[in-house]
Amino acid sequence: MLFSVHAFIFGLGIYRGRMIFISKEAAVIPSVIAIILLVATWILSFVHFKSAQAKESGRGFSYWDIVKRKFFRDKKGITGAIIVMIMVYMALFSPFLATDDPIEMNYSNSLAPPYLNHPLGTDNYGRDIFSRIVFGSRVALGIGAGATLFNMVFGGFLGLIAGFYKGITDSLVMRLLEIINSIPFLVLAILVVSVFGSSPLTLIVVLGIFGLYPARIIRSEVLSVREEEYISAAQAVGAGDFRVLFRHVLPNAMASLLVVTTMRIGVNIIIVAGLSFLGLGINPPTPSWGAMLQQAQEYIRIGWWMAIWPGLAIFLTVLGFNLLGDSFRDVLDPKLSKTSLQE
């Protein structure tokens, strides 16, 4: 049921996305969001399925059942989930929520303060800021989540093999991380984006490949998991490396993977906003929160509303992901509470 609803939204998102965006490249974004939403739905149904299964078998509370109960009792997590949901649905339904065209300019109406017909005011080109923020959520979430997906695939894979094979593989991966970490991520992102350009798809891939931070956490998780007896048991039965990694190691590193993913989305959203703010990210006229803030800089004396709302949108979205991630950490695994908040 949930699946078909999201599949419908998925199609709709692509369709409407094409119609509204000028650049063809940006049309990729709604589909990215829809894919992320699908993945989220799968995870949720997985949790639900597992806990239902446990109940049926009459073995009392399963791990996922406890997770679910704990999560619904955590105010932080619920608040975060609500914020994230609002933002995700805003991104998918932006053509229906926006009251105005986010791109077409109307000079006769420029820099109008917040008022009834323009609840958040208009910018220096006379465009409705509310509508631009609504559409900007596509860029933020689409690229943020898309880049995180790449982060997890690349970083997760590197972390897995480093922790599992140890020895030379491990030290190679660790050196690679050290090399990339020695340059602050934002500076690296600026460099790379200035070379490879800044279409949404390039941003996703570039941020995805260079943001290898998750590797470190996955590695340390795998290092502890691989010493467990069920791993040697699986190996003794004759399971190959591939099977052991994906059937036995990965599921047990799932908790930290989920926490890191959630928090990483927040980091990526801030990085994309920062790049756009410097004029190196999303190009105008495609509405993005970072670029809106860049534009607002020149008008802080006469149009404060241009600067407040996009930043508030970034702040709320990232806060939502951070609250959610923090709550996941508390709920999924008490061991994790020691890992630091960000890189």
């Binding site: 927040g266 920062g274 703010f277 702040f315 609250l323 908040l341 960000q342």
Partner: peptide
């Protein structure tokens, strides 16, 4: 958590 979620350039602008 709120502090980590704020983009520095926006904090400065505000």
């Amino acid at each position: 958590l709120a502090g980590v979620s704020m983009p520095v350039f926006w904090t400065a602008l505000m």
